[in-house]
């Protein structure tokens, strides 16, 4: 290695000829993201009486290649919130490690008894996504924010365009096609949330993850799940500051159970064929 750092890591001129700088020139206009590269697939989430359950598998695909099989796409943000991300994994890591971690650290430095709830995290994320789309430099993700907020379960979605909406059952990517109909059958509207127990919600989301693994070619039989439940209100500090108690139960590296591929032997052609 010589004393010129700019030459490090490049082919030696005396061996390979001089370096062709046209490949690394800075004169062309800067390109923004036009497509995602390493991607995560669906995130599935459902509200129940007393909380929210959210799940995402552990795969990051490179096109059709199952490239990374141990990626955690769910992240707890503060004490009240879990976010799940589909789409570009590097953008997800930017959001998780550069934006959300910083946000929470700054919030905790205040040490003023205030804390960010799920709706605040959601608000922040959706504004960041919308701001980036307005700069024509989108973060290529669809994000579900699940949590406990003001005595109620919270669940909402935001995507790379800044589109936001909320519903008692949400799923991104392929899940929007395959999981949503299954979840809506159990939970058609906000009123139905009261009739869904935690066990039932977990069961439904597990079922969705299975259906998604059967039919989504960019999914994995290993996934993570987080169950966020409200546990009442606690008094913190001497000044009687109230804070909602929230419990987040994590289940990681869940192996897809009770698979049945019996249907597979009957499939001919693309599935619709009968002969």
């Amino acid at each position: 290695m010589n004393h010129l750092p700019e030459a490090w890591g490049r082919p030696r001129n005396d061996v390979y000829g001089s370096y062709d700088h046209s490949y690394l020139q800075g004169s062309h206009p800067q390109q923004h993201t036009q497509q995602p590269i390493v991607t995560g697939t669906s995130v599935v989430a459902l509200k129940f009486n007393g909380g929210v359950v959210i799940a995402a598998d552990n795969l990051a695909s490179y096109g059709s290649l199952a490239r990374f099989t141990d990626v955690e796409r769910l992240k707890q943000v503060g004490t009240h919130t879990v976010v799940g991300t589909g789409g570009d994994m590097s953008d997800m890591q930017h959001i998780y490690e550069k934006l959300l971690d910083t946000l929470i650290i700054k919030e905790e430095y205040q040490n003023d008894g205030h804390y960010l709830r799920a709706s605040h995290i959601y608000r922040y994320l959706s504004r960041v996504l919308y701001y980036r789309r307005c700069k024509f430099n989108p973060l290529w993700n669809t994000i579900l924010v699940a949590g406990w907020d003001d005595g109620k379960p919270f669940l909402a979605s935001a995507d790379l365009l800044g589109t936001t909406f909320s519903s008692p059952a949400l799923a991104t990517g392929y899940g929007a096609h395959l999981a949503i109909p299954l979840l809506r059958r159990a939970c058609p509207d906000e009123a139905a949330v009261a009739g869904i127990t935690r066990e039932r919600a977990v069961e439904l989301v597990e079922e969705c993850m299975k259906v998604l693994f059967y039919r989504d070619a960019r999914s994995l039989n290993k996934y993570s799940m987080a169950v966020i439940t409200g546990e009442g209100v606690e008094t913190t500090g001497a000044d009687g500051e109230k804070k909602e108690k929230v419990h987040v139960e994590w289940r990681k590296d869940i192996e897809l159970a009770n698979q049945s591929w019996k249907f597979a032997e009957n499939i001919k052609g693309y599935g619709a064929q009968t002969v």
Binding site: F165, S166, S167, H177, E190
Partner: peptide, 9 residues
């Protein structure tokens, strides 16, 4: 979004 219903509310 296209043929999908994101939310009814």
């Amino acid at each position: 979004s296209g043929y999908n219903i994101n939310s009814r509310t």
